[in-house]
Amino acid sequence: MRRIGITGGIGSGKSVVCRLFQVLGVPVYDSDARAKWVMAHDPALRAELIGAFGAATFTTEGQLDRTYLARRAFQDPAQLAALNALVHPHIGRDFEQWAARQQEQQHAYVLKEAALLYESGAYRQLDQIITVFAPSEVRHARVLRRDPHRTADDVLSIMGKQLSEEEKLQRADFVVYNDDAHLVIPQVLALHEQFLRATG
């Protein structure tokens, strides 16, 4: 079973591309959603988070206080690096367990969706990488439409923390252009057929 990573900057549309692969029956591991779940439910990680960021990381009801954690971590690059260093190894193990279950079900290939695929080192678990590409001005406009609570400066700040699109393109094995000038579905279908042939 091949493991294919899929990444792209904020607003590139990688979640839309992943949904198309899911329609084709391909299992997709959503790193962001799983990270939230693991942070809330993994006892070892909970203890590490409390040790690093304080008891207020979790509410009195035991729920992860994402607002508090974001305020602590995302304002300080050193704190953000510390948070990622704690979380990413747990997510790596969670992905390995998930992938093993998919292999038991004899899937030809699976996708791992992650915005920080390279930054986290998660690409090392994968056979090939897809980058979903859209120009920065298109991505910026999409995020502002999608997330009305964000300001233009918020979006630029997030983009600045992610690996450049140029480097993602250079490191990618495959590119899906989601730039409003290319049809996405034919690109996904072509990749799906290629992956099936490679594992058939």
Rank of each mutant, 00 (worst) to 15 (best):
Q63G: 04
R139F: 09
Q128W: 05
Q125W: 13
L156G: 10
D147R: 03
Q128L: 12
E113T: 07
Y68C: 12
E113L: 09
Q105Y: 02
V110C: 13
Y109G: 10
D154S: 05
V155A: 00
R145H: 07
R72N: 03
E137V: 08
A100H: 07
P77I: 09
I158S: 00
A85E: 15
A141M: 05
A70H: 06
Q75W: 15
E137F: 10
R124H: 15
R66D: 03
A73C: 08
P148R: 03
S120F: 02
T131P: 14
R124V: 15
S136A: 14
S136K: 02
V132F: 04
W98I: 07
D94S: 15
D153V: 10
R150L: 15
A70C: 12
H107M: 09
H140T: 08
Q102G: 08
V87D: 03
Q162C: 03
A115T: 02
F95W: 04
L116A: 01
R146F: 06
R66E: 07
T131H: 05
Q106A: 12
G121C: 13
Q63S: 13
E104H: 09
E113K: 01
V138A: 04
Q102C: 14
L111Y: 00
L126K: 01
F95I: 06
D76L: 11
E104W: 02
H149E: 09
F95T: 04
T151V: 14
I158W: 01
W98L: 10
Y118R: 10
A122D: 12
T131R: 02
I130T: 07
Q105A: 09
V87C: 03
R150N: 08
H107F: 11
L156D: 12
E104N: 12
T67V: 15
R146N: 06
I158K: 01
V87R: 03
R124T: 15
E104Q: 11
Q106L: 07
V110Y: 00
Q103T: 06
L126I: 12
E137Q: 13
V155L: 01
L83Q: 01
L69D: 00
L163T: 06
D127S: 07
T131Q: 08
Y118F: 11
Q162I: 03
W98H: 13
A99Y: 00
Q79C: 06
R139K: 04
I129H: 01
V132W: 02
Q97G: 13
Y118L: 10
E119W: 03
S136T: 09
L156C: 09
A115P: 00
L80R: 01
L64Y: 02
A152W: 05
Q103R: 06
A78P: 06
L86N: 09
V155K: 00
A70F: 11
A99K: 04
P89L: 13
F133L: 06
R146C: 09
Y68E: 11
R71D: 13
Q79W: 00
R93C: 13
L64W: 03
Y118N: 11
Q105R: 08
V110I: 11
H140Y: 03
D127N: 12
R101G: 15
E61W: 14
A141N: 01
